[in-house]
Write a protein that binds this DNA or RNA. Structure first.
Lengths: 156, 156
DNA sequence: TCTTACCTTGACGTAGGCGTTAAACCGCGC
DNA sequence: GCGCGGTTTAACGCCTACGTCAAGGTAAGA
């Protein structure tokens, strides 16, 4: 039940805005990374702003974590659980069910957090090494310049 | 001209120590990520400790940055330039040449540093988002628990 | 010398992540 | 109602990063 107020976008516009190809959007749909979009009468796909954000999120995960789409699917699926959780806010009944979903969501996000945290730590380490290297090179460069100062250019 | 003192390793041992398959080692060689190793009379590849480190480095880059091998090749090639630079350190003659090499090395390492820096920043951002999310979940969970406290379980 | 484990090249296979093309259909201005 | 561009599904292609045989050569101990 999509919000009728929402401005819907055709695949071409979504492609342009997200920087992926139309083929990629259909491919993600095929692989379950994007839910089946609403269609207009003729069958054309209609995407929401939510869909656009989702695509952007997928690409960030792909770029940053460099993991397979299957893993990304798990991640975005987990987010869908949350959205449902929020949508289904009926204060009656099924509190236990909600709690279970919430616990599952927490597990997933904690897992993601762990991965990202470990990666950042390793990358910080690498960054420090590179920085150190740059300092070394600068030192060498200085030494070269001093050497040249003492020993004039083209001594012949 | 490899160091005769060095203990050489066959492909199997390198595979075991680095955790990649022999196929992968040959593949990296084929793609130029590893230089052609020395061989024993029968044709068996002989690797040095340097090679082992290089493989480990390649894998770190692959894991961390998640970039294609082609890009990784550029990075390790750049490091080779540095190694040559250090090896060719003849304090006489060709100061300008040295300076050019050094400048090139600095460029390369600055490029690597830029990549790593950008990625760490993006990952820090993602980490912050995940953390925020976890806080939200905890809040929700608390709310659920309070809700249950007021409204006793299974009211029938 | 024989065995056995390890190694060689070569060739084909595969999973993921799309690109590309084809042939038909839809929407819309005129 | 025509033209034209955006969209549809389906199918095949391609590149990466290896895996997996296959068929044989090598090293080294019994």
């Amino acid at each position: 039940m999509p919000d009728p107020d929402e401005a819907y976008l055709q695949i071409g516009e979504v492609a342009e805005r997200t920087g992926v190809t139309q083929r990629t959007l259909r491919f993600y749909e095929e692989k379950g990374l994007l839910g089946p979009p609403t269609r207009m009468d003729g069958g054309f796909r209609l995407y929401s702003e939510q869909d656009v954000k989702r695509v952007e999120h997928i690409r960030r995960l792909q770029d940053l974590l460099g993991v397979a789409l299957a893993e990304i699917k798990e991640m975005v699926d987990a987010e869908e659980v949350l959205r449902e959780l929020r949508a289904q806010y009926r204060p009656d009944s099924a509190i236990d069910e909600k709690r279970r979903q919430l616990e599952r969501a927490i597990d997933v996000v904690q897992g993601q957090y762990g991965i990202v945290k470990q990666k950042t730590e390793q990358m910080e380490e690498m960054k420090a090494q590179l920085k150190e290297r740059l300092r070394t090179f600068d030192r060498w460069m200085k030494e070269l310049n001093e050497l040249e100062a003492k020993e004039p250019v083209a001594p012949g």
